[in-house]
């Protein structure tokens, strides 16, 4: 079937099959930032934004993206670099394989959460697994990022 959707700001028409996942389609279109770590919606590596909401592309049929606005890290380079600089300042990107998924979810969280209390942040990001960092460095980076430009620490 043919679907039509916006990918990183560009309208595209694409042939897809009934069972193709959005993850496969995105990699096919050269969005190599999107990674897969588990195939079972447990790790968060394949997180992308569909109409501004975090979605796990490994378990999201490509056909469902028809008519939607899809953003991967390729389409959020400025934001990635900004939050990424906080991550790198902690050394918390480590292998970097889970970074794109985490960053997409942090960007979604920033828009969605009213309060950046530590417990809220941890709960929001709980689906983003990381095997290198033990999460503490990521948390330090998220805190510094969310309170950037402020004198006080919000969480």
């Amino acid at each position: 079937m043919q679907i039509e959707f916006t990918l990183n700001g560009r309208l595209i028409y694409e042939e897809t099959s009934d069972d193709e996942t959005l993850f496969h389609l995105l990699r096919r279109k050269g969005c190599y930032s999107v990674k897969c770590g588990c195939e079972t919606e447990n790790c968060g590596l394949c997180t992308v934004l569909v109409n501004g909401v975090s979605r796990l592309s490994c378990s999201y049929l490509a056909a469902r993206a028809d008519g939607c606005d899809v953003v991967t890290l390729e389409g959020a380079q400025k934001e990635a670099e900004e939050f990424g600089s906080f991550l790198a300042a902690e050394g918390a990107e480590q292998c970097g394989f889970c970074s794109p998924g985490l960053i997409m979810n942090v960007l979604a969280m920033e828009k969605e959460l009213d309060s950046y209390e530590e417990e809220n942040v941890k709960e929001y990001l709980a689906g983003n697994l990381c095997r290198c960092s033990g999460y503490m460095g990521q948390l330090r980076a998220v805190k510094s990022y969310l309170s950037r430009g402020e004198n006080r620490n919000e969480c």
């Binding site: 190599y32 930032s33 999107v34 990674k35 991967t72 890290l73 390729e74 380079q77 990635a80 670099e81 939050f83 990424g84 600089s85 991550l87 790198a88 300042a89 050394g91 990107e93 292998c95 970097g96 394989f97 970074s99 794109p100 960053i103």
Partner: peptide, 21 residues
């Protein structure tokens, strides 16, 4: 000193640097 990793920027911006990429 805690200098940043040399590959940090490529990693956090999701550049195609891994095997399957």
């Amino acid at each position: 000193t805690s200098v940043q990793k040399k590959d940090a920027k490529a990693l956090v911006t999701g550049k195609p640097v891994f095997t399957d990429d």
